[in-house]
Amino acid sequence: MNIAYWITAGPLALFYFYAGTLKTIRSRDQLRPMMAWVDRTPLPALRALGAVEILGATGLILPPLTGIAPSLAPAAAIGFVLLQTGAITVHLRTEDRRIALNAVLTATAAVTIWLAIRQ
């Protein structure tokens, strides 16, 4: 296994697994302090987004770990780049300029794509 891949994909997967779990189980009131945009998003869409994040995190870890369908790892990372591109758009459209975390996640996912393809 490529150690550099695990150094980037591991924390990325942990972040998305945690964030996705929060979005699937917490109420809108519990999420509001962390995510100001939850009031503008329908609850089913918020839950679906959490499920997508959990599945993407799983896609970063299980395929390379098991050797089954390893092409799913770069696909999951591409999905996270697209997800964060959308997140940045939502933040900027609502005049919320706090996009530093989104930019870091986008860059990390992009590096993860490159490392996953190199394996």
Rank of each mutant, 00 (worst) to 15 (best):
R47D: 00
M1N: 11
T106N: 06
T106I: 07
G79C: 09
L115F: 08
A77F: 13
F17D: 02
G20Y: 01
G86N: 07
P63A: 10
T89E: 08
R26H: 08
A36L: 08
L43W: 00
I68D: 11
L14F: 08
V111Q: 12
H91R: 10
A77D: 12
A107F: 13
L62N: 04
R97D: 13
A87V: 09
P63N: 09
L92A: 12
L55E: 02
T108H: 03
M1R: 11
S71G: 15
D29L: 11
I54K: 03
T58I: 15
A57D: 05
Y5E: 09
V81L: 08
A69P: 03
L65M: 14
L14D: 04
F17G: 13
R28C: 00
G20R: 01
A109G: 05
P33N: 09
P44F: 01
L49V: 00
A19I: 05
L60M: 12
R93L: 09
R28W: 00
I99Q: 05
D39W: 02
A77E: 11
L62Q: 08
W6R: 08
Y16I: 10
L92E: 10
I113C: 15
G20N: 02
L101Q: 11
W37H: 09
L72Q: 10
T106Y: 06
P70F: 07
T112C: 14
I113S: 14
L83S: 09
A107V: 13
A45Y: 02
G20W: 01
I117F: 13
I25Y: 02
A110E: 08
L46Q: 04
T24A: 06
G59A: 08
Y5H: 06
L22S: 11
R28F: 00
T24D: 00
R32T: 06
T24H: 00
G56P: 07
L83C: 10
L31N: 05
A48P: 01
H91Y: 03
L60H: 07
A45M: 13
H91M: 04
A13D: 07
Q84H: 14
T66I: 08
T8R: 03
L12Y: 05
W6G: 06
A51R: 00
V111H: 10
T89K: 13
L12G: 05
P63C: 12
I3K: 10
V104Y: 07
I117E: 15
G59Y: 07
T58F: 14
L43G: 00
D29M: 08
V52E: 02
R47E: 00
V52S: 03
M34T: 12
G50L: 02
R98S: 15
W114P: 05
E95K: 15
A69E: 11
P33W: 03
W114R: 14
R98Y: 12
N102I: 03
A103K: 11
P74Y: 14
L62P: 05
A73L: 11
T106G: 11
A57C: 07
Y5V: 09
A48G: 03
